[in-house]
Design a protein around this nucleic acid. Sequence first.
DNA 1: ATCTACATATAGAGAGCCTACATGTAGCCT
DNA 2: AGGCTACATGTAGGCTCTCTATATGTAGAT
Lengths: 109, 109
Amino acid sequence: MNPDALRGHMDALLLSVLEREPLHGYAIIEALQRRSGGALSVPTGTVYPALRRLERIGHLSSEWATVSGRRRRTYRLTDAGRKQLEGERSAWREFTTVIGGVLRAETSG
Amino acid sequence: MNPDALRGHMDALLLSVLEREPLHGYAIIEALQRRSGGALSVPTGTVYPALRRLERIGHLSSEWATVSGRRRRTYRLTDAGRKQLEGERSAWREFTTVIGGVLRAETSG
DNA sequence: ATCTACATATAGAGAGCCTACATGTAGCCT
DNA sequence: AGGCTACATGTAGGCTCTCTATATGTAGAT
């Protein structure tokens, strides 16, 4: 998967895996990999900064926990984040329709 | 359309509009707009450098022409460009499948 | 002791899309 | 003559995000 292709879709992915339940960063990476059937291996250097950014703009909130001696930062969707996820989903549909339409275009012009 | 979403898909769009016939930059911009039903307004500052880049890596070739007093640089697909377009199309299908799958995921995990 | 899995974080690089600006022709209108 | 719009190409610089590489530390197995 070309990294550049993920641009602008990372937020949607992260919000999406957090929709059902709060997760910490490491678990989010695993969830993305599992849900994508192994196609998505998003590096920590991408995910952790992205999560912090999403928290900064109010789409996520986080709290620390210690589980069996290891510190975790667990993120959950805020109300704004849930609303944002809706927006991301409809943006995704529009995006695929538009780009897909151009790529498929067999008609004149 | 969020600019970042286009990242990594610009090449596919440009190669795609050049598939049937050679076009110059300005006409390419119009073609993208027309084919997308008005959704894509790609600025000249994006298109012209991108076309040059695609020529540099051998996916396009160009030649100058003067039409009614105005200079045009007309781009056409090379064989490599045509092959690349195939690759872009299958990459697009995989991309939408993977991301779409994660965004839609309602199943456990 | 050493290795792997778990867990978070940052610095810096790289790339590409955008805004803004620069340049010039043609044609229409006043 | 002057001004406006459409046509046509191009570059400089900014911005933002993703990635690579690196750092730090715990737990558990060998």
